[in-house]
Every structure is written in C-alpha cells, then in structure tokens.
Design a protein around this nucleic acid. Sequence first.
DNA 1: CTATGAACTATTGTCTACAATAGATAGTCG
DNA 2: CGACTATCTATTGTAGACAATAGTTCATAG
Lengths: 228, 228
Amino acid sequence: MTEHQLESPSLVQLAANAIRRMILAGELAEGERLIEERLTEQLGISRPPLREALRVLEQEGLIVTKPRRGSTVATLTDQDVFEILTLRSALERLAVELGVPVQVPERLKVAQDALLEMERCASAEDRGSLVQAGYRFHSSLVALAGHRRLEEAYASVQQQLLLCMARNLYAREHFYEDLHEHVARHRKLLDLVEAGDPASVLAELAVHGERSFSEIQSNVGSREASSS
Amino acid sequence: MTEHQLESPSLVQLAANAIRRMILAGELAEGERLIEERLTEQLGISRPPLREALRVLEQEGLIVTKPRRGSTVATLTDQDVFEILTLRSALERLAVELGVPVQVPERLKVAQDALLEMERCASAEDRGSLVQAGYRFHSSLVALAGHRRLEEAYASVQQQLLLCMARNLYAREHFYEDLHEHVARHRKLLDLVEAGDPASVLAELAVHGERSFSEIQSNVGSREASSS
DNA sequence: CTATGAACTATTGTCTACAATAGATAGTCG
DNA sequence: CGACTATCTATTGTAGACAATAGTTCATAG
C-alpha cells in the first residue's frame, strides 16, 4: 500500500510549482529575466521562500542563475535538445532492464490506463492532452523499475522535454506525425513489456527513439554554445 | 579554451559546499537532524542563505527535508546503494556510447593524469587519495561525451557514492581488494577508450561494475524501506 | 562626435525579527 | 499506576528592511 503522506506543501513548493507551470506554459519567454520582486507580487509571497523556489528550479534545469545577476528562464539550444533526448533514452533503457520482467503487476495498471487515455486523446485529436498522457505512460514504464532516483532523474528530464515542446523545438516529431500511429507504437511497447522480454522492449524502444535522434542530430551540426 | 568565469561565489554556494564536505567527511552522522540555527552559528551566516543551501543539498540527494520537520542527513539503505550503482552504470554507458571514438583529444589528458595519480596513490597505499583520483578518472571519462546534463547527473550520483563509502556501505569492494589490480582495471579501461571501440569499452565496463553489483544485489533481499 | 568616467537606479544578497507549528513535558483524571 | 490533555519550548516558515553590486544613463573631455 502506497503511503499518502498528506502534508500541506510549503510556500516554497507552491511557488516552485507555480513558476514551473508558467515556464512550461510559455508564459515566461526564452531567456526572460526573473525579477524576484515582481514574482513575489504575482504570487503574493515574500522573497525568502521565492528564492528557495528558484534554487529548486535551478537544480531542475529550468532556470539559470548567475551570482548577482539574477535568474533567467533556460534557453535551449539544439545541443540541449540532443542532451535531453539521449539522457532520457539512457534512463528508459535502465528502467526496462531493471523492471521488465514485471515484478509488481499493479504498476502495469497505471501504464495501461495512460495508454487508454492516449487512445482517447488520439481519437479526439486532442494533442495537448495526448502529450500529458504520453508523459504519464512513459513515467509509469520507468516506475516499473521501482527505482526512486531513476524516477526523479527521469521526471526532471521529461520536464525539460516538455519545455522543448513548449518552444516547438521538438514539436514536429511528436505533433505532426500520425496520431494513431504514435499511439500504436506505445501500444506495441506496452505489449512487449507485458510479454516480459527486456531485449525486445529495448529494441522497440530504440526504434521509438530513433526518429527523434536522427531528426535532432542532423541539426546538431549547428551547435550553439551553451553559455554565451 | 575553457572559460574561467571567475565569479565570487555567494554565501549559498559556500554554505552548500561546507555542509556537503561535512556530510561526506562523516562529521554529520546518518540521519542526524540539521538544526538551522546551529549551522548558522557554525558557518557565521544567517538563515536565508543557509536555507537556500539546504534546498540545493536536498536536490542533490544528500539531505532529506520534510515540511515543518526540518532536514536530516540522508540515510542510505541497501536499496539506495543499489539505485546509486545502477544509475551510475547507466550514465557511464551513455557517456561511452557518445564519447568513445574520442573527438576532443585534450579531454583524454585529464583521464591520463588521473590514472597516473591513481597509480601513485596505489603504490603509496594512500586509499583516501586513490578514491579521489578514481573519482576524477571516472568523471573525466564521462566528460568525453561533452554532455553537460550527463556530467551533472553523474557528479550527483558519484557524490552519493562517496557518501556510501563514507558510511562503509560500499567500502569492502573498493577498499579491500588489491589496490594495484584496481588500478590495472582502470588502465585497461582507458586503453580501450583510446583504441576507440565503444563496444569493447562497454564490455569492460560491465565487468568493472559487475563485482559491485553482485556484491550489493546479494544484500538487496534485506531491502529496508526507504521512508521509515 | 566619440569615448571615458561618475553618479544613479534597479535588483540581488543578506540580516534580524516575528509568526506558526511540531514535539516534549508535566499535570490531572480515570 | 497508566493514559490523555494542555501548556510550553525548541525549531521551522515567513516577512520586511537594509546593504551591496551591476547595469545604465548622462555629462564631460578629448
């Protein structure tokens, strides 16, 4: 039985969530400076908890902070997208290796639910919700490994990937392909997971990620410097 | 040419470094509560920057913070050690896959230097310095990939591994084997990297990590709960 | 007209103080 | 004598204010 800790979150967590949402929703532009006082007014809190929240977001890779120069929303180069995709892929591989002869059947339920949701979204052509459901699907696959650090690292990377999509850096691949084919690939993945053979899942996963890779890597020739 | 940014660190960074050192040096015990006011006296700073530093360490996985209940030094179960080792292995694999036909020869120099240092330490039987040099060696291998996020994730995991060793949770494997054999394995690894064949490096890396795994996984049967 | 310097403003870095909560201790009632 | 409750204390959460720094603008000199 999973424990529902039920602890009221501190202002730090609330602020971090709020700013995270703003960034991922595109309300804060690429490289935009985050003025602390302005944010305290918007959120109705004072600076100490806000600053702690910014530290959290900094560690998550969503913002960049330079001493005495404030924080800015992370700017993503092609190199960054490449890093995010490769790292995500490596983490998913580990998850499959550790989790795929599935030990805890209940965990599969979450993945199945997410997949059903994806199919619903695909039929409704609701791309926004499809992305969310896809996020849950992949997260639930990673959760199969029962590996807390892996889950956290994956969540962080996935979040940055959402940021890519908010910037349309990664949109083509995920948004403009055939929606039902997209879901079908995920269905196949889940089938293989349920079958319980790690190798075949890894193979499918490689195909799954390949198109992202090839599409991005062709752009990597024009690597911009991460720090300007 | 690498940029020497030369920016004076804030109290937050200094405090985070100081506390990190204290934890890794074992000056703060397993699960010990971190009283904010006490730390402010020790470090000679006030609470706001200290609290930001604690947020940083929390994200790094060295401390655990519960709302309104303060922070404690992370306690590591066998499950945690297992997670750290598997995650580290996965990250190293990615690094090799991306970096091994070495693109930037200068980066190899760091690894070579670290290896020489390791050999010196092994001859002098200086186990403490050997661990440090080993840390630099592995970090430099990961750096071959030119993948910032990978390096950061790896540094975080490596740090937690140092914490394991400070607790003697992982000590047997690294400390009590033959020191020269230990260094020889690293030498072989570097040779393979220089040869430029990713597959052989990965194979050696698997052997490299295998003994850690088998040793730990036998203990995992007695998995304690992560959250007590 | 351009470049250099100084003053000013906006913003971050830090500190002290207050409010709120969780744990502990003691007292009382069954 | 044991258990429950209330108060009290130690500690965390938050706020507001002050100090210090970086960027900007304007003035002046070449």
